[in-house]
Every structure is written in structure tokens, then in C-alpha cells.
Design a protein around this nucleic acid. Structure first.
Length: 676
RNA sequence: GCCGGCUUAGCUCAGCUGGUAGAGCACCUGAUUUGUAAUCAGGGGGUCGGGGGUUCGAAUCCCUCAGCCGGCACCA
């Protein structure tokens, strides 16, 4: 006998080997009917599995959030059956559940196209309607092996090869069709339901290795309800609407063209945004960092010393001069910074020495990797290198952590995950060095989590470290729930040694400093892409490339409009005039589409009264107020967050204190997507 | 780099099985002087991504190169 504990706390005895299904039936036929799987001590299992030990048991319905992965996994099996029945001879490989759905990889000479989707979906619906039960069979490895070999399923054979000899494997059957699978599954194909959709086809390497043949992958998604599916499809549309490439064109921020694949042509508005962001970062660094600028082109020898030549030669832009010297256009700032460190004898008193650069780097990225601003071949890193002693290392990492987190908070990113990436297979440096570095960073990671009061989550990324050392990766989540890795802190015990960098310690001995590489935005270009999508182009006033348009009703208002624009400019606001002979509705529409945050409409009435009519982007409301009042409010709102904070602190020091209630006028900036 | 798709006016897109290009918006000109998301009329604009081939004839079919899009692989 064994004891099972139910969700209500009741414990009951059952014979060994009783199945979940038997228990559910015993409780009520309706429970058995609506249950698709069970969870034993929180772990999902087939409902028909015999239970062999004491456990906490839960019956999982289709609507249970935990059933979602089962629905998707079952849908993948249904997809595979549908494809094989439509195109016999297609080999099946693997079909896992992924974050927002599932995929299945097929081997077929002729790849699928989205045109095949209607036929496949139709067949899937038939299989689901047939509602065959998922039944599990345990086969011997050898039997499975020969079964799939006879069917010509060579990829499955390879999968089985990886299973230790003598071990049994699980087969899931759904009517005629069956697949090698770990499970678990729901009780029958009918439980998949109708809320699924095939989304796209793509090539994918077998086992994720580019040396292997390429398979055809079909992506799909499935949800418990049609409403959930519709909501997801709507979110995809929303992401498309926010696409920075589209907004970049519509808002006249930047462009790309054929002659420069992967390099940005920044237009005036986009460059304003870029400069505003860079200015903000410079202010954040001013107190602790020295900003430097290392050369763009350096002799190959330097890259050989750093190790980049061995690792990344094929990804570097290289140029040879008339005298046959070979130079690389810098893909990284660190070797340059080490040269600056080495110039002149350094004392332990100089440490920690924090060297920052908004370094323009160039990398010959694979053509298929290029993607708008998100992946380019020439970009600007908000890079820095901290040269410090072993003893200072942990504190420096924590200090950087604070800088990174507070920066993200200024852009409204508050859901952050910090991941520690550990030693990769291909690396430099001794195991002792890696042991030590990972130990220090593991401690720091714990501290980061502890001092965040639960706001920051942490994780480990095994094997994902840089070739010279472990790293922290900062992943932020945007307004529509997508994750972006931006910041990074990398501990490096290698480079300083390779370059022979040293400082003189307190006892007069030469010592090699530890070097910490760190970036916050990462790539300024990419960060602007992320911000564009995060804000859906509705940048907060301080970042908006064009903050104000002063628009007239008729020509009678021209003179006053000029005075308004001048007042705005005097207040440091970026304003333009729209004096065109057009209806105000036309101007409103145009500037709204261009996502101008503030529209100041001036007509006869405003000119007479010395007021402006304010219309904020995203709102149809208008508010009239005195020009001076409007300018003061806008100037306050347009003050970058760090300066506002500094002003608050200064006021506090003087004992006065600043009214912490944020000044707002109607239609104040909100992150689209989070607003009601 | 790999697989698939795409490339027609500044933008978004039509153009059937080959018979030498079209719309809306934008732009220019004129009229209109307008009160919060498109005023009306007229006009200009494309060697259909580049190169090559098939054909009497190519935006359309084939080859090739480039770029872009979706993935995969890569991302110091």
C-alpha cells in the first residue's frame, strides 16, 4: 500500500501500482473526464502511469497552467503525424516545446512552405477530432532501434544511439502513429483542442550543429483557449507594430542601404537620440570613470597578443597598407585600454583605475546575423575596463551592478535577470584561475540577489563565459515582455598578463592587476533599438529627438508661434515650427503619426492671451495654459532622470527638499502597452 | 555562413498562364486662411535590385551576384 496526499490535505491509502486514472475515476467520472495528466510531488506524469510510492497527487486539467506545455507537446506530435501522413517518406526528428509554442524538425528533400500550412492544419484537426488515446509503451533499446531503422527514420536511430545500451525507451502511440518520446502526454489527441496555429517554417541544423545537415522546422503555437491564442497573435502584431526598423523609417531616425550592410546611417533625429543617450551615460560615469579614446586601427600583433586574432580573425575587418603591414579595425576596446594603462608606471594607489570609452568597434558579423540596429557590423560600445587588485574585485563588481541596475531603472526597466556565465570548453587560462574567478563571481551573484530585496532574479549559464573569463549578463524585460541581454561584467585574469601589464604594490613588488570588462547598454545602437521598441516610438520627453511642434491655425498666428518656439528653445527644448497653410487637423494627424510628444497649437485666441493649447501624443485632450507656465512644466519634464535626481539631492542638502510628487500635465508620457 | 522567401515610384502594394508598367499616400504647382488625426484641383516621378541567358518579345521563365525578411548557426 502507498499513501497519496490530495490537494485538500486528505491522505488516502492505495494499492501499489494504482494509476492516476483509476483514482480519478474512483473520485468521480467527471473528474476523470476533465483530467489530462497528473502531478506527483509537483512533477507532471501520464495519468495512466502506475504510482509506486507515496506522493502528493494533483489532477491536472486542460485549463491548468501546467497543462500548457502538454498541449503544445501533444500538438507537436499531432503535427508530426499530420506531416508524415501527407508526405510519406518525410523523416521525423525532434519536436520540443519552446517558450511560446513548439516546433518539429523534419528531414525532407523539398522544404515545406507556409503554403503547406492549411493542408497540415486541416490534417491536424482530423487527428485531433479522431481523439485517439496517447498510450505509452516501454520498448527495449534494440527493438526500437531496429523498428526505426526499418522505417528509414535514420535521425531517430541516431537519437537512440545516444541512449545507453540495455536501457529501455518510451514510445508514445496515438492511434496508428507512434514516436520515441520522454513524455509525459495528455490522455488523448483530442485534448490538444482547436486553439493552435502553425506560424513559420525555417531551416535548422540537425542537433544545432552547423556541420550537420539542415532540416526543415515548422513552428507552431497552441493554447488552452481560443482567447489565449488570439491574445498571443495580437501580441505578435504589437511587436511588429513596434519594430524599430519600421519606426526608424517612420520617425526618420536612421536608414540602411545596400552599400553598407550592417552599418547605420544616422539621420539628424536618430543622432539626437544617440547623443542624448550618450550624454546621459557620460554624466552617470563622470564621478568614477576616466573617459579615454583608443585608436581605431592597430597592428595585428596587438590582436595576436590579446588572443582575439586566434579566436575571431575571420570576424575582423583587416586592412593592409602599402608597406605590407597588417592592421585590424578594432573589434574590441580592451587591448587599447591596456596600452593606456601600461603607459607610465602604475601604483597600487592608482587602483581601482576605471577607464571608459564610447568605443566605435567593427566586427564582420555573419551576413545572416544582421538585424536592423540589433545586430550591426559597426557600433558604439559603452565600454569600460576596471583595473584593480584581487581584493577590490568583488566590490568593483557590486559597484558596477549598482550602476547598471540604476541605469536600467531610469529607462523604466525593472525586471532584470542577472546570469553568471561560466567557463566555456574553448578557453584560455588555467583551471585554477577559472575556479577562483568563478568562486568570486558566484559570491558576488549571491550578494546581488540578496541586496535586491527580491527584485533581481539570478541564474547560471554554464559554459557561456568569454574565452578569457566568466561573466555576468544583465537581461532586461521590455514593455511587451521580451528579454534582451544588454549589460555585461566580465572578470579577466588573462589579458593584463598577456600584455604584461602590472602595478607596484605596497611592498614595492610588481603585480598583475585584475581587469574587469563591463558594458551597460552594450551597443548604443542596439540599446536605441530596444528603447524604440520598448516605448513603441513614444520616447519619454527627455529622449525624444523632437520634443515640441508649434503649429498654427492660420497665418495670423505665425509671429506668435515664432515667439513660442523661441521660448521653448531658450528653455533647452527641441522645438520645430509648423506654419504651413494647412488645416489644424492635418497638422495634428501628421505630427501624431511622427510621434511628436508635444503639440503646441496657437491661433488667434492664444496669441491674444499669451497662452498655448497643449496636445500630448496619445491623447485627444487639449489643455490651455500660459506660455511661461507651459514652458516651465515641459522643461521640468524634459529634464533627464539623473539630473532631476541630482537636483533633488542638492535641494535636500540645502534642507529645503524637492517636492517629490512628479509634475505632470495631461497626457503625460506612459509606456504604451502598460497604460490602460 | 546555412535553409526558405522576398526585391516594381520616397512609402505601402497591384500587375492573370511572357505581349515593353498601375493605385493610394508622399512630393511639386495652383486655389483655399482653415480651432485639434487626411481641403480641392492639376502635375512630375520607375531602364520593375545588378549582371547574364532563353524567346520575335521578359517585371513575368532560367542562371548568377547583392541586399532585405523569417529562422538556424555565430555573437570577443
Amino acid at each position: 500500500m502507498l499513501t497519496l496526499t490530495f490537494p485538500d490535505g486528505a491522505a488516502r491509502q492505495f494499492p501499489d501500482g494504482v494509476s492516476g486514472l483509476e483514482i480519478a475515476k474512483g473520485i468521480s467520472p467527471s473528474l476523470a473526464k476533465r483530467t489530462v495528466a497528473m502531478a506527483l510531488d509537483g512533477v507532471l506524469a501520464d495519468l495512466a502511469d502506475p504510482i509506486l510510492r507515496d506522493a502528493r497527487i494533483e489532477f491536472v486539467s486542460r485549463e491548468d497552467p501546467r497543462a500548457l506545455i502538454l498541449i503544445r507537446h501533444d500538438a507537436a506530435h499531432v503535427l508530426a503525424e499530420a506531416v508524415q501522413s501527407l508526405w510519406p517518406g518525410t523523416q521525423v526528428t525532434i519536436g520540443p516545446v519552446i517558450e511560446n509554442g513548439f516546433y518539429y524538425d523534419f528531414a525532407r528533400n523539398q522544404p515545406f512552405t507556409p503554403d503547406d500550412f492549411p493542408a497540415i492544419e486541416k490534417r491536424m484537426r482530423e487527428i485531433i477530432a479522431r481523439d485517439a488515446p496517447f498510450t505509452k509503451e516501454i520498448w527495449s533499446r534494440d527493438k526500437t532501434q531496429s523498428f526505426f531503422r526499418d522505417k528509414g527514420e535514420m535521425y531517430k536511430v541516431e537519437l537512440i544511439d545516444a541512449i545507453p545500451a540495455g536501457e529501455d525507451v518510451k514510445i508514445y502511440r496515438q492511434g496508428e502513429w507512434l514516436d520515441l518520446c520522454r513524455g509525459p502526454h495528455m490522455t488523448s489527441t483530442g485534448k490538444v483542442g482547436q486553439a493552435f496555429r502553425l506560424l513559420k517554417v525555417a531551416g535548422a541544423y540537425w542537433r544545432g550543429d552547423s556541420n550537420n545537415p539542415m532540416l526543415t522546422r515548422i513552428y507552431g503555437t497552441a493554447f488552452a483557449t481560443q482567447e489565449d491564442l488570439d491574445a498571443y497573435l495580437k501580441q505578435l502584431e504589437e511587436a511588429e507594430r513596434r519594430d524599430h526598423r519600421r519606426l526608424g523609417r517612420e520617425m526618420n531616425l536612421f536608414h540602411f542601404q545596400e552599400e553598407g550592410p550592417g552599418v547605420v546611417f544616422w539621420h539628424a533625429k536618430g543622432w539626437t537620440l544617440f547623443r542624448e543617450l550618450t550624454s546621459y551615460m557620460r554624466r552617470r560615469l563622470a564621478a568614477d570613470y576616466d573617459e579615454v579614446n583608443a585608436p581605431q586601427i592597430l597592428d595585428k600583433a596587438l590582436w595576436e597578443t590579446s588572443g582575439h586574432w586566434d579566436w575571431y580573425r575571420e570576424n575582423m575587418f583587416v586592412t593592409q597598407t602599402e608597406d605590407e603591414r597588417v592592421f585590424a579595425i578594432k573589434p574590441m576596446n580592451c587591448p587599447g585600454h591596456v596600452q593606456i594603462f601600461k603607459h607610465g608606471l602604475k601604483s597600487y594607489r592608482d587602483l581601482p583605475l576605471r577607464m571608459a570609452e564610447f568605443g566605435s568597434v567593427s566586427r564582420y558579423e555573419p551576413s545572416g546575423a544582421l538585424h536592423g540596429l540589433m545586430r550591426v557590423r559597426a557600433f558604439t560600445q559603452d565600454d569600460a575596463h576596471v583595473f584593480c587588485t584581487e581584493e577590490q574585485l568583488a566590490d568593483e563588481c557590486l559597484k558596477i551592478n549598482e550602476l547598471i541596475l540604476s541605469t536600467y531603472a531610469d529607462f523604466g526597466f525593472d525586471r532584470i535577470v542577472v546570469k553568471l556565465s561560466t567557463r566555456p570548453d574553448k578557453r584560455v587560462g588555467s583551471d585554477e584561475m577559472w575556479d577562483h574567478a568563478e568562486e568570486v563571481m558566484g559570491r558576488v551573484l549571491e550578494q546581488i540577489e540578496a541586496q535586491s530585496q527580491g527584485r533581481i532574479r539570478t541564474a547560471i549559464n554554464p559554459g557561456e563565459g568569454a574565452f578569457y573569463g566568466p561573466k555576468f549578463e544583465y537581461v532586461l524585460r521590455d514593455a511587451i515582455g521580451r528579454d534582451w541581454q544588454c549589460g555585461t561584467t566580465q572578470v579577466d585574469f588573462n589579458l593584463p598578463e598577456r600584455f604584461g601589464a602590472f602595478y607596484i604594490d605596497a611592498s614595492g613588488q610588481k603585480r598583475t592587476p585584475v581587469m574587469v570588462h563591463r558594458a551597460i547598454c552594450g551597443s548604443m545602437e542596439r540599446f536605441i533599438g530596444i528603447l524604440t521598441e520598448h516605448f513603441a516610438g513614444h520616447f519619454p520627453l527627455w529622449l525624444a529627438p523632437l520634443q515640441i511642434v508649434v503649429a498654427t491655425i492660420t497665418q495670423d498666428g505665425d509671429e506668435y508661434a515664432r515667439a513660442v518656439a523661441k521660448a521653448a528653445a531658450r528653455a533647452g527644448l527641441r522645438a520645430e515650427l509648423d506654419l504651413r497653410n494647412e488645416k489644424i487637423t492635418y497638422k495634428v494627424r501628421e505630427h501624431s503619426l511622427a510621434k511628436v510628444p508635444v503639440l503646441l497649437v496657437v491661433g488667434k485666441k492664444e496669441a491674444a492671451e499669451g497662452t498655448v493649447s497643449i496636445r500630448r501624443l496619445g491623447s485627444t485632450e487639449q489643455r490651455s495654459m500660459a506660455l511661461s507656465e507651459a514652458i516651465a512644466l515641459l522643461r521640468d519634464e524634459a529634464e533627464p532622470p539623473d539630473l532631476k535626481r541630482a537636483r533633488g539631492e542638492a535641494a535636500e542638502d540645502e534642507g529645503g527638499g524637492l517636492d517629490s510628487s512628479h509634475v505632470e500635465i495631461d497626457g503625460h508620457h506612459v509606456v504604451a502597452g502598460t497604460a490602460g
